[in-house]
């Protein structure tokens, strides 16, 4: 993994170091409470379509991807950040959608064209929340 600055029109630039993005996209830490709401929202974070997590009130969770429980033990915040921003940087064939990338995508629906799935602020909130999900 290199040490490269990624910059796209309309998105905040970020630097990848190793398998991580060391600095928050916004320059400041996110809010884990807001992050929790984003992760649980099926139309915003959409995380529970594929992942399961510690959300007993959410009945329909996914099993395509690793459980979110324990994500904060498996990864650092910096590693989580790159995995959400653009996991394809680590594994080209990953099914994980690129949450903060707009280039290299095909046939994006008009309402979503040119927009990342989450904003920089939302990604920092999600990173802050996932970091709290330690192994019990």
């Amino acid at each position: 993994m290199g040490n490269a600055v990624h910059a796209e029109d309309g998105l905040r630039p970020y630097r990848i170091v190793g398998d991580a993005i060391p600095a928050p996209l916004t320059g400041e830490a996110g809010d884990p409470e807001r992050g929790r709401a984003i992760v649980a929202n099926r139309r915003v974070g959409m995380c529970l379509r594929c992942h399961s997590g510690p959300f007993p009130q959410e009945r329909f969770q996914g099993t395509l991807a690793p459980p979110l429980t324990g994500a904060g033990s498996r990864w650092t915040e910096k590693q989580l950040r790159l995995r959400i921003v653009d996991a394809a940087q680590l594994n080209r064939d990953t099914i994980m959608p690129p949450y903060y990338r707009t280039d290299g995508l095909e046939r994006v629906a008009k309402g979503f064209a040119g927009k990342p799935i989450l904003s920089a602020e939302q990604i920092e909130d999600v990173v802050a929340f996932l970091a709290t999900l330690k192994d019990q």
Binding site: R42, R59, F60, G62, I95, P97, L105, E106, R107, V108
Partner: peptide
């Protein structure tokens, strides 16, 4: 073909992940 904002292909769900659950429903 991977397409859309979520960058998914039909094959990623229906070949690679058939039998697993998407939002609680078996793919």
């Amino acid at each position: 073909l991977r397409q859309g904002q979520l960058n998914l292909s039909c094959a990623q769900c229906h070949d690679d992940n058939a039998g697993r659950k998407l939002a609680g429903v078996t793919i």
